[in-house]
């Protein structure tokens, strides 16, 4: 179940060596790499970005390689499947469609896959080093209205509670053989989901009382621990972005076949 993957990612985001750094630093670093992966030519930029992002996560934030690969597995599966689809062409003549492979389609598949790999590595850099709530706190800079951010913060909290309920509920059903065949499994899944919603809404109502006892005014304002922005980290990130861009431009100009 996705709960295990989420638990792992969330845990890493909360406990990695960079988790106490200002979110803006890591957003700058990861977001910059993500942007570069989209706008620079995949060769040679994508491998460089992949390398930089993976190094930041594994060496900088000290995330374990095993966990990193486990999290990367799902996107890799999507990429492999997508690569096959892109590499194969459909030839619609001669009545029945034929599948063919061309150098063009292989080149597209390779470029797209490489670029996506670099982009995913950049996304993982953000996902694995910035806790979700710290990211949501930054959302007001994007002029997201406060109530939406508050709903998102609460939703994160409820999501964590809901996953626990779902995992334990499913376990309880499995204890009573609720998943022995497809028919019973559909019934059990439905029961589980139907039980979850009222429980969550109930939780919401009790939370309402909990907040009211703390003189809630309707808004959910909170204060985060004060963290300072590190100019060194920021300039390092910018330097990294600039050098990847510079190498790419140099490559494209110097290697004729790249154009």
């Amino acid at each position: 179940m996705a709960a295990a993957a989420m638990d792992l990612i969330d845990r890493i985001a909360q406990t990695n060596r960079w988790s106490r750094r200002h979110p803006a630093e890591k957003l700058m670093l990861g977001g910059g790499l993500l942007l570069l992966s989209l706008i620079l030519p995949a060769i040679p930029a994508a491998p460089l970005i992949l390398l930089a992002a993976a190094a930041a996560v594994l060496v900088g934030a000290r995330v374990s390689g095993r966990d990193y690969l486990a999290i990367l597995a799902a996107p890799l599966a999507f990429l492999a499947l997508g690569a096959v689809v892109l590499a194969v062409s459909v030839q619609p003549d001669a009545g029945a469609p034929w599948l063919t492979v061309s150098t063009d389609s292989i080149a597209t598949a390779a470029t797209v896959t490489l670029r996506a790999l670099a982009a995913v590595a950049s996304l993982l850099l953000i996902v694995l080093t910035v806790p979700l709530t710290a990211l949501l706190r930054q959302a007001h800079r994007l002029r997201v209205p406060a109530p939406i951010i508050e709903i998102a913060v609460m939703m994160y909290r409820f999501t964590m509670l809901a996953f626990g309920m779902a995992v334990r509920g499913r376990q309880a059903q499995a204890n009573r053989l609720g998943y022995r065949n497809l028919r019973r499994a559909i019934h059990s899944s439905g029961l589980l989901a139907a039980t979850l919603l009222p429980r969550l809404l109930d939780r919401g109502r009790r939370m309402e009382i909990g907040l009211a006892t703390r003189a809630c005014t309707g808004e959910l304002r909170t204060l985060a621990p004060a963290v300072t922005l590190s100019p060194a980290f920021l300039s390092g990130a910018v330097a990294l972005h600039a050098s990847i861009a510079a190498v790419t431009v140099a490559w494209v100009t110097l290697v004729p076949s790249a154009a």
């Binding site: 806790p131 949501l136 706190r137 909290r157 939780r203 939370m207 703390r214 621990p225």
Partner: peptide, 12 residues
Amino acid sequence: DDQLFAGTVYED
């Protein structure tokens, strides 16, 4: 769990 809502203990 009926009372803790914010992202971190400090915020809460």
